[in-house]
Design a protein around this nucleic acid. Structure first.
Lengths: 191, 191
DNA sequence: CGTTTACACTAGCGCTTGCTTGGTTGACCC
DNA sequence: GGGTCAACCAAGCAAGCGCTAGTGTAAACG
């Protein structure tokens, strides 16, 4: 119960936990199931994490930080015009479903199981991510690429995107590129 | 353990269960909590429902049937043109959040907790609802009101709509009418 | 060399869970 | 006015839960 750092071992355990949380749900995943999946006994688990809650927080933190990093990188590398920026954000979002799908599903479905302190810490991360979106949506609104209420448009877009975890198959025919293009086409007016 | 009908008492218990499932989540809602909320003892609960799973199924069934009925009624009463039909569907969807919000939240968040047989029964209901949507979206595509891939467009729209349960406040300023208009405006091309 | 550190183990405590059992109550029915 | 039946209760069982305490061990350190 001494460690709170981010050792490589802990990272790996977090990845395994994410998978189980998706399969079974947080509440139905017991510490014994987690331990077995990790190849250790249940007692040993509490050497790496203070309690079960902390495992959940670690999973969500990991996923959100990756998504945020990827989105920032995508914005840095793309053209400066609003349409390219919208496209880059959508593509980055869908690409994280390839690498961090489990963590994202957990973040969406098990958010309410976080205790208050973990939630407030993580909501800052999530707000930062959504702020990126609102920024590029604002730019698109400013030049008339999109029309409508700022608040509503961003909610609708976040909804369409977050919903993709329920049906998108990263191994299927459609690439993140395709989906991003289609989504942007749907919500933008022809120039 | 004798009853499986839909007595008025059972309807009321189902409504209360929906509320608790939203507050606490299905797994964290104990049969004792349910019983207390209903003003009976935990043992008596199993006179009305075979087991805890059946309560969950009842909640989701009730909500989905209502949504389906409301959507059909809305389609019957509106104009025959594609835009009016899209609008009617969106408005009906948002209006169910006024009357059946709890059941809808449960259906979205706790779907995976259903056992296989309940799931297959309820997925028919849900498919019927989504089929209504795909129908009106097809009509809109046919006349060029919307453009894009049939499959992707309907997923994006379902996502934007289902996501509303996370942020929409039915008691706030915006009416279902407003939201529906804004959503349709976002995805349709000017004629 | 002795000490510390990281990681794992065994064993189990105290509590809660979904559900069962066996029985009581009061309204209705012929 | 005996029978039926939905509705409820008290009591508790077997299983499983998160987590703790105390110990072992092998590598790393000064």
């Amino acid at each position: 119960m001494n460690v709170m750092n981010d050792s490589p071992r802990r990272k790996e355990l977090t990845r395994l936990a994410a998978q189980l949380f998706v399969q079974e749900g947080f509440d139905r995943t017991t510490v014994r199931m987690l331990a077995q999946e990790m190849g250790i006994k249940s007692g040993s688990l509490f050497h790496h994490f203070r309690d079960k809650q902390e495992i959940l927080a670690a999973v969500i933190e990991e996923g959100t930080e990756n998504a945020l990093g990827l989105a920032r990188a995508a914005l840095d590398q793309c053209d400066r015009n609003p349409e390219a920026r919208l496209h880059a954000m959508a593509r980055a979002h869908l690409e994280t479903l390839l690498t961090d799908r489990n963590a994202h599903v957990v973040a969406l479905y098990e958010w309410r199981r976080l205790d208050p302190e973990a939630r407030s810490h993580l909501s800052h991360l999530r707000d930062a991510y959504e702020a990126l979106w609102e920024e590029v949506i604002d730019e698109a609104l400013a030049v008339g690429l999109i029309q409508g209420d700022r608040f509503l448009v961003s909610r609708f877009v976040m909804g369409a995107l977050n919903w993709t975890v329920r049906w998108y198959d990263p191994l299927g025919e459609r690439s993140p590129e395709d989906l991003a293009r289609e989504l942007i086409a749907m919500i933008t007016r022809p120039a």
